[in-house]
Simulated scan of single mutants.
Amino acid sequence: MIRYSLKCGAGHGFDSWFKGAEAFSALKAAGQVICPVCGSATVEKELMAPAVRPARKAAAPKPDLSAPGSELEEKIAALRRQIEANSEYVGMNFAAEARAIHAGDAPERTIHGEAKPDEARAMIEEGLPVAPLPFLPARKVN
């Protein structure tokens, strides 16, 4: 496994793991390496330094990974809290439940959940008022 530091055409930096250089090249050529911030498939490897472990005595304190790392992360966390507090999570039944609400066959309410890309595309084409969320459901977060 190899970790690459990547940067999209809009300047967003991120990193990702790949089986090797060939796997990265194949995924990039297929348009499957995308920026998690803006969704751009224009992604390039950045210059990287090898990972060198510091001596045990010189190890830096561990960062608080539960705290937002940027203003954008804080805004996304606030949006997530607002959505979770004011809507019902319907899981993988999102497409069916959204269609039922839109048709008047289910009670009118605000919902959020998961849909496969083809289901999401179909709902948008049908004119359902849906939008993707910029975060994963809590059960899918590491």
Results as ranks from 00 to 15, higher is better:
20 G>C: 07
21 A>H: 04
41 A>Q: 07
64 D>H: 05
67 A>F: 04
61 P>L: 02
70 S>W: 08
43 V>M: 03
72 L>F: 12
68 P>I: 05
59 A>H: 03
66 S>N: 12
74 E>V: 11
37 V>G: 03
56 R>G: 06
19 K>G: 15
81 R>Y: 12
30 A>W: 15
62 K>D: 05
77 A>F: 04
28 K>L: 07
33 V>S: 00
56 R>H: 09
47 L>D: 11
77 A>Y: 03
52 V>E: 01
43 V>N: 00
61 P>A: 00
61 P>W: 01
78 A>I: 11
60 A>E: 01
50 P>R: 01
52 V>Y: 05
82 Q>D: 11
33 V>R: 00
62 K>E: 07
24 F>H: 03
31 G>Y: 01
72 L>V: 14
80 R>Q: 08
66 S>V: 14
39 G>R: 13
57 K>Q: 15
39 G>V: 13
41 A>P: 10
41 A>E: 10
32 Q>T: 05
68 P>G: 05
42 T>P: 14
69 G>N: 09
55 A>K: 08
73 E>I: 07
80 R>I: 04
70 S>Q: 05
27 L>D: 03
47 L>C: 10
46 E>I: 10
47 L>A: 14
64 D>F: 07
70 S>I: 08
58 A>E: 08
59 A>M: 09
49 A>V: 14
40 S>Q: 05
78 A>H: 09
62 K>I: 13
27 L>G: 04
73 E>M: 07
